[in-house]
C-alpha cells in the first residue's frame, strides 16, 4: 500500500469545477500551502471553500499561502469566522477583484463550534443534530429550532467536503499521520470528514517508525499523500525562517507578536 504521490499536481488531480474543499487556517503554519498553490495553478472554478477562519492576511505570499488566495476561484464560503479584507483596505494593495468577490460571495458563517460539529457529524456518518450555541443570535436565522426539556436548540446538517486538504507533520505511506503543536488544529477533523483526503506533510517515515500510540489520524482516513521539499516553500523550516526574517525588522515585529495589542484598537475580540 502506497498513497504517496510524486507531485502536488498529481495530488490534486480530478478536483472538478464546483468541488467543495475543506482546509485548516490558523496562524502561519498548519495550512496546506502547496496544495493551495497547486489548486490555484490549475484554475479550478466555482469552488466551495470550507475553513474555520477565512480572512485576508497582510503577510506576502512568499511567507505564507492561505485559503483567502482562492477567493477569485470561489462561489461559496462555509466558515466559523470571516474577516473581510475591505476592513483592511487602507493597508493592502489587494487587487480590487478580491474586494468585489468577497462582497458577492455566498457565505455561511456559523461560528467555530457549529462549524467543527457539522464536519464531525459528517465524519461519523451521523445525520442532522441540534446545537445549543447561537440561540438568540443571527446564527439561528433561517434554521429550524426546537425545544427539548425547556431549552432551545438549532438544527444543523452534517457537512461533508468533497476534498480535504490536510497539513500534517509526518506520514507513513499507509497514511498514518502525526501533527506538530497547534498546527494540529482542525486538520484531524478535516481528514475524517471529507470524501477524499489529500495530505501535505514535511516528512515521510517508514511504516513502523511511528509508535501506534502517537498516531493521531489513522491510515483509514487518508487517500493521498504528498511530501514537501526539505526546507522548501510551505515546510515548517521555510515558514519559520520567513517568520523570523520578518521578526528581525523592528517596525514589523510589534505587529506580528503584539497582534493582540493592535486588535484592541479595532475592538476585535475573537
Amino acid at each position: 500500500m502506497n498513497k504517496v504521490l510524486p507531485s502536488f499536481e498529481e495530488a490534486i488531480a480530478g478536483i472538478p469545477d464546483g468541488a467543495s474543499i475543506a482546509l485548516n487556517n490558523w496562524g502561519l503554519a498548519g495550512g496546506p500551502q502547496n496544495l493551495i498553490l497547486a489548486l490555484r495553478e490549475r484554475g479550478v472554478k466555482d469552488l466551495t471553500v470550507m475553513t474555520q477562519n477565512f480572512m485576508y492576511t497582510p503577510f506576502p505570499e512568499e511567507v505564507v499561502v492561505m485559503p483567502f488566495m482562492l477567493l477569485p476561484q470561489m462561489r461559496k464560503l462555509v466558515a466559523g469566522f470571516f474577516a473581510a479584507a475591505s476592513r483592511y483596505a487602507d493597508t493592502t494593495n489587494l487587487p480590487s477583484e478580491f474586494i468585489e468577490k468577497e462582497k458577492e460571495l455566498e457565505k455561511e458563517v456559523i461560528g467555530h463550534g457549529n462549524f467543527t460539529a457539522v464536519l464531525r457529524a459528517a465524519a461519523g456518518g451521523m445525520g442532522p443534530f441540534y446545537s445549543p450555541v447561537g440561540i438568540g443570535t443571527t446564527v439561528e436565522e433561517g434554521r429550524e429550532k426546537r425545544n427539548f426539556d425547556g431549552k432551545e436548540y438549532i438544527l444543523f446538517s452534517p457537512l461533508q467536503p468533497d476534498f480535504a486538504f490536510v497539513r500534517a507533520d509526518k506520514a507513513d505511506r499507509y497514511g498514518n499521520l502525526t501533527y506538530n503543536g497547534t498546527c494540529r488544529c482542525l486538520n484531524p477533523v478535516l481528514a475524517m470528514a471529507a470524501k477524499t483526503t489529500i495530505v501535505e506533510v514535511d516528512e515521510l517515515v517508514e511504516p513502523g517508525e511511528f509508535s501506534p500510540e502517537e498516531i493521531v489520524t489513522p491510515a483509514a482516513f487518508v487517500d493521498r499523500i504528498v511530501v514537501n521539499e526539505v526546507g522548501g516553500r510551505g515546510s515548517y523550516e521555510y515558514t519559520m525562517k520567513k517568520l523570523h526574517e520578518l521578526l528581525s525588522i523592528p517596525e514589523v515585529r510589534g505587529a506580528i507578536i503584539g497582534a493582540a495589542k493592535k486588535f484592541v484598537d479595532d475592538g476585535e475580540d475573537n
Binding site: 461560528g111 467555530h112 443571527t138 446564527v139
Partner: peptide, 18 residues
C-alpha cells in the same frame, strides 16, 4: 455583543458564541 459592527460585511463569530 462582540463579533460584528453594523455595516461591515465581516462575520467575526469565531469561538465567541461557544
Amino acid at each position: 455583543a462582540n463579533w460584528a459592527i453594523p455595516g461591515d460585511i465581516s462575520v467575526g463569530i469565531g469561538g465567541g458564541m461557544d
